[in-house]
Amino acid sequence: MTPLKTRGTALNPHNRFQPIATDRQVDDGWYQAPEDTLCPDSVATEVTDERVRTIISRNRSPDVPFDQSINPYRGCEHACIYCFARPTHAYWDLSPGLDFETRLIAKPNAADQLRRELDRPGYRPATIALGVNTDAYQPVERERGITRQLLEVLLEYRHPVSIITKGGLILRDLDLLSELASQRLCSVRVSLTTLDNNLKRTMEPRTAAPATRLKVLRELSAAGVPTGIIMGPVIPFVNDHELERILEAAATAGAIRASWILLRLPLELDELFQDWLQRHFPQRADHVMARMRDLRGGKSYQSEFGKRMTGSGPYADLIRQRFNRQARAVGLNREPEPALRTDLFRRPGSEQLGLL
């Protein structure tokens, strides 16, 4: 199948929850396209609205440093081929492949629902991670503005929020983020996977350029917003050689913290990523997957807590040692990360001005 411009994949693997599968890649002779019909070289993005009844998701995984999160959108136009969230699109009767990038679901009532949930008498504030499953600052946010609406509510309630993004659009909300940060209510992590523009264009087509992400770090840091990076994912023989340079560039741009995550290939993502490897790195594809199986106990992926983020074995130990050594050398992770404040939480219009 011909790759599509500015898309991570042209594949649309079968939805694992559907009992019937069709294979449109097989020519059985029944359909004959007109001679002047050409396959499109790109696919437009479709956005469907969903009126949600809940907006805060709870998390019990010991592998992530947050208990609750909000995702303004389902699916992600950034089109990162490695995105661990792709398989979640199957829950909506859509494919984790091209559908994940082109058939998005927006939550226009997210801010109103957030108010209702924060106003509940039993709610107790804890940092909300914004845009964890899919990026809150993907291109559709420019028109929809749902993420900004959520930040306005969080600022009004003086509620702590942490953000992970690879989108330059976050600088649009610098006014809100700097005000939140002045009360120690906000931190931002930028996902920085490569400094190579060519690799970026194939691996994460619609994300901000590496130089733009470094600009995000500089401007947020200058505005007093605590910033860091996540080098995620580390992919053997694809971007692992950039580790030291990425950490140095991030520190120079003002980041104070850094972490890393190994490539994860759950469910349909395994097929999608291996197809991408064969298209873009055919000479090293088998080598990459052999190393992944070394890291995952002989499989493409392990889902066990404690292993899924970093893998195991000599190569995982080597990445950890390289990362920690370079982080120390450039001044990252010098101090434990301070917790965001929860004692400022208030419910506007009520008599409760703080959490007792």
Score class of each variant (00 low, 15 high):
residue 4 L to P: 03
residue 5 K to H: 13
residue 8 G to R: 08
residue 11 L to Q: 08
residue 12 N to W: 01
residue 12 N to C: 07
residue 16 R to V: 09
residue 17 F to Y: 15
residue 17 F to Q: 08
residue 21 A to S: 15
residue 35 E to G: 10
residue 35 E to A: 15
residue 36 D to M: 09
residue 36 D to H: 15
residue 38 L to I: 10
residue 43 V to R: 03
residue 46 E to L: 11
residue 49 D to K: 11
residue 55 I to C: 07
residue 65 P to D: 11
residue 67 D to G: 14
residue 70 I to K: 00
residue 77 E to W: 03
residue 80 C to G: 11
residue 80 C to D: 10
residue 83 C to Y: 00
residue 83 C to S: 11
residue 87 P to W: 06
residue 88 T to V: 08
residue 92 W to M: 06
residue 99 D to Y: 05
residue 104 L to G: 02
residue 104 L to H: 03
residue 111 A to S: 07
residue 117 E to D: 09
residue 122 G to M: 10
residue 126 A to I: 02
residue 129 A to Y: 00
residue 129 A to D: 04
residue 147 T to Q: 02
residue 163 I to V: 15
residue 164 I to W: 03
residue 165 T to D: 03
residue 166 K to I: 12
residue 167 G to K: 05
residue 168 G to E: 04
residue 172 R to H: 13
residue 175 D to M: 05
residue 176 L to Y: 05
residue 177 L to K: 01
residue 182 S to G: 04
residue 192 L to T: 00
residue 195 L to M: 10
residue 200 K to E: 12
residue 200 K to I: 08
residue 205 P to R: 06
residue 207 T to V: 14
residue 209 A to P: 06
residue 210 P to G: 10
residue 218 R to E: 08
residue 220 L to T: 00
residue 221 S to Y: 00
residue 226 P to L: 05
residue 227 T to C: 02
residue 227 T to D: 00
residue 229 I to V: 11
residue 239 N to L: 11
residue 244 E to N: 10
residue 244 E to V: 03
residue 247 L to H: 00
residue 258 A to M: 05
residue 263 L to P: 13
residue 267 L to N: 07
residue 268 E to K: 03
residue 277 L to W: 10
residue 277 L to G: 07
residue 287 H to E: 15
residue 290 A to F: 12
residue 291 R to I: 15
residue 292 M to A: 11
residue 293 R to N: 13
residue 296 R to A: 09
residue 302 Q to H: 08
residue 307 K to A: 02
residue 308 R to Y: 08
residue 317 D to G: 11
residue 322 R to W: 06
residue 328 R to Q: 08
residue 329 A to R: 00
residue 330 V to W: 00
residue 330 V to I: 02
residue 333 N to I: 00
residue 335 E to M: 13
residue 337 E to C: 13
residue 340 L to K: 01
residue 341 R to V: 09
residue 342 T to G: 08
residue 348 P to R: 09
residue 351 E to V: 03
residue 353 L to Q: 14
